[in-house]
Design a protein around this nucleic acid. Structure first.
Lengths: 333, 333
DNA sequence: TTGAAAGCGCTAACAC
DNA sequence: GTGTTAGCGCTTTCAA
């Protein structure tokens, strides 16, 4: 039977309880619990025994209050079920741990109220990093005074930001597809028709610069099912397509499913490329060629920036970092 | 320019600094910061202005110390890059948030020292849940006194546990494959040849009970690449195979890749099934039939149990819960 | 080797 | 409506 459950209803033991039980001062308990020098072995053991007996756990609040040493980064993601976010989260956790920081995780997709979710997070964390589903104005309200780094900030401006611009890499992708022999590439973008995404624009521009006019089909959302539907629409509109550049790897997976269903060989008949460089791209067959971004670098940039803001080495507003994509050729092209 | 960065080197403002700056008592600052009643609007605004000016952020330690209200569950996963863990993490975060708890995340795969990683986590969290890569003995050392629930505990015994036994569902899977016409199914297990996994045994038993003797091939690890290699070995050893039951969805994805490479149609020539019910199974084509487990239920069970242990309603040792798998038929069979 | 005193930042309870 | 007091649990002095 556990000590805790053997004393039902009793409040958690404090350092004083242990001190009394062991017949020593609080300070001696501290010394015993924290492996500090200057305590006789026998005393230490006695204290430890008392602590165990009472199921004593030092309060992290008491501890945190005195030694300002327990630091936490709040990570906001949309939805861990979306294969993109775990890769980011994994990298952020690693970066944070390396610096001795903890990570508390908040997921906006499943939250009733984004606003209060982030507000709560801001109270538990020393800095906030990630993808809050908030406007600049909202973010400013909720996060006033909290070092905040938005990842992939796009048009947002409040706080610090890490940009992942596809930039030059899109040129490499265009070159690659053309070298592979594509003559009639099509862009499978995301969003409303007529409103190309930044990525989409970048691809169109890169192709145009190479003398190729690329038609666009738009999937409704960045989801797998939209990818399927979008690719089907694309095949209908452009039956002679020989390469598809997609908004991201998830949409590309959807497109790959649609192509399989339609009996179209990839990359034999149609070459297919994604964007983001998700590990997911290696689970499908053929493996996805993609414009990859180094998530480790993104996380390092974001965590590093947030911590610098926390340390006051960088202003809370305006810091920017950039991480480049690079062409990752796999089997689908 | 931010208030913080405009006062470089100064320690963070405390409630006292704000009180002095606004010419009020600490208590009034508390009232203003926490939207408490009994404060004149004008005073409140003055206090808030002072707080903003000083970049004041209430210390969560001071707060936590007085109102015992800030609770945290520590979640241990192996590696978020493994598609299994994000699904668990997502569900745990949701379950925890519903109860007003935070989640701090620890990832063992990328940690130099598992032991101290978990030890640290135990200091930051009120309960620990997940997959620590520790023996029972180690767990007991590190987590002494901390409510701890191991998910998928297998042979472990320390602390509480949530079991995900494949049980009856494996019978459904066997029935399903046989109904679909399979006569020469093969098990693609994981681990050392001759040492079938619990899941593997369960499948063999279910098939044996139906009068079918199933040969086994073992993949080295639970990874994608092992799945590919294992499936290739399987095809070589059993060229007439007509159905493959795999250890889990990840291995199944690997097998699917190998089958595609080999020009084997799924499910036309070979039916393929996985286990776990990962969302990943919907990204591949054909989508994977699988023995799914409801991660929401697993998370609920684990978090609920841990919180009950924390509340002293359940002993720290010996609590068990069980979540059943169920057959999820998709296109691969 | 041990203990006593002081204080970390905050809020609940009670005065005024 | 506002201030005062007390105390949350811990560790860092400093003294014995």
């Amino acid at each position: 039977m556990s000590p805790r459950s053997s004393r039902p209803g009793s409040r958690p033991a404090t350092i004083i309880d242990v001190a009394e039980a062991a017949g020593v001062s609080r300070q001696t308990v501290t010394r015993a619990m924290n492996d500090m020098p200057g305590i006789k072995e026998a005393t230490k053991e006695r204290v430890l025994a008392a602590a165990k007996e009472l199921a004593y756990r030092p309060s992290r609040f008491g501890r945190g209050l005195v030694g300002h040493t327990q630091r936490t980064v709040g990570l906001v993601v949309d939805d861990l079920m979306n294969p993109y976010y775990p890769e980011l989260a994994s990298a952020v956790v690693s970066s944070a741990r390396e610096r001795g920081w903890n990570v508390v995780l908040a997921q906006t997709a499943k939250a009733a109220d984004q606003y209060s979710l982030i507000a709560d997070l801001a109270k538990q964390a020393d800095v906030v990093v990630g993808y809050p589903a908030l406007t600049d104005t909202q973010a400013q309200e909720v996060l006033a005074g909290v070092p905040f780094v938005r990842i992939d900030m796009g048009e947002y401006t409040y706080g610090g930001g890490v940009q992942m611009d596809v930039g030059d890499a899109m040129g490499d992708m265009a070159d690659h597809l053309l070298e592979r022999g594509s003559r009639r590439p099509v862009l499978l973008d995301v969003g409303l028709p007529g409103f190309p995404s930044a990525r989409g624009k970048s691809f169109l521009a890169a192709m145009a610069a190479r003398g190729v006019q690329v038609p666009t089909v738009s999937a409704a959302t960045k989801s797998l099912s939209s990818g399927v539907a979008g690719a089907n629409a694309l095949l209908e509109a452009h039956p002679d397509v020989d390469a598809i550049m997609t908004f991201n790897d998830i949409v590309a997976c959807g497109a790959l499913k649609a192509l399989h269903e339609a009996g179209v060989d990839v990359p034999g008949q149609v070459r297919l490329a994604g964007c983001d460089g998700l590990n997911l791209g290696r689970f499908v067959s053929p493996e996805l060629t993609t414009l990859a971004v180094d998530m480790g670098a993104v996380a390092e940039a974001a965590v590093g920036m947030a911590l610098a803001m926390y340390a006051g080495e960088v202003p809370l507003q305006g810091a920017r970092a950039q991480v480049a994509h690079h062409l990752l050729v796999r089997a689908s092209t």
